[in-house]
Amino acid sequence: MHRIVAMRNFSGLDELVSAKGEHLGYSEWFDLTEERVEKFAAAAGFSTQEPGFRRAAEGSAVSTVHPGCLTLGLLPSMMRAVFTVERARSGVNFGLEKVRFPCPVEVGARVRGGAELSGAQGVPGGWLVSVRMTVQIENERRPACVADTVSLFLV
């Protein structure tokens, strides 16, 4: 596993919150290899041979697509690659508001995440920060996933 270096580093939560409405950047490309799909399935407790785990892509009986939850599992790594916040005691995944999967992702594709800071709400001890993550598929017009994430940053 390689070390991820964030493209944008905020000195603190006040600086992050002031970036509301800005596109923060893109992660590096992630290869969705057969091995990654197999490891994801094993970690999730099911077999890639189970009916419904994968399906043929539209118009093809050979290509297979991976489940959307694998794409969701990549979001934290993608977000860390886009931005970091110094002087925050911790940052944790608080949840998801809305998730859509407009386009299936074939095994062997490359994806990357783009982050837009869509909101920030002060809470006791920190901030709830909303980031819209749009996962792009290399050489595909439609995104693989659009997810409105919520993270809790504590001071």
Rank of each mutant, 00 (worst) to 15 (best):
F101E: 01
L117T: 11
G68E: 08
A57V: 14
A88M: 04
S130K: 11
C103V: 01
G21Y: 10
S77G: 11
K20P: 04
R142E: 14
F53E: 02
T84Q: 11
R36G: 06
P67V: 04
A57M: 15
G114A: 12
L13N: 02
C145E: 12
G73M: 07
E97P: 06
F83H: 10
R100T: 13
Q49N: 14
V85C: 04
E34S: 15
G21E: 11
V146L: 05
V150F: 01
L70P: 00
R3H: 13
R54I: 07
R8G: 04
R87G: 03
A61V: 06
E86R: 13
S118Y: 03
L24S: 08
M78S: 01
G25Y: 05
G68K: 08
T64M: 12
R3N: 14
H66E: 09
A6F: 00
V146E: 11
R8N: 08
Y26L: 13
V5H: 10
E15S: 11
F30S: 05
R55Y: 04
P104W: 05
T48D: 06
A57W: 09
H2N: 12
L72N: 02
R54A: 14
P102Q: 04
R142A: 15
R3C: 10
A144K: 01
N9G: 03
V65K: 07
R87L: 07
F30C: 06
S118Q: 10
Y26I: 03
M1P: 11
V155M: 03
K39L: 14
F83Y: 15
V99Y: 07
H23Q: 14
F53A: 07
S118E: 13
G25T: 02
S47I: 10
D148Y: 04
E38V: 12
D31H: 14
E15Q: 15
Q136Y: 09
L154I: 04
G91F: 03
G25L: 06
V111W: 02
S27K: 11
G73E: 01
R112E: 01
G73T: 04
P104C: 09
L13A: 03
G91K: 00
G95I: 09
D148I: 08
N139P: 01
G108K: 03
P51S: 06
M78D: 00
E138G: 03
V146G: 02
F94W: 14
K20C: 15
C69L: 13
W29Q: 06
F46C: 14
I4L: 15
V105T: 13
I137K: 00
E38C: 08
G68L: 07
D31F: 10
G125E: 05
L13F: 09
N139W: 06
A61W: 03
P102K: 07
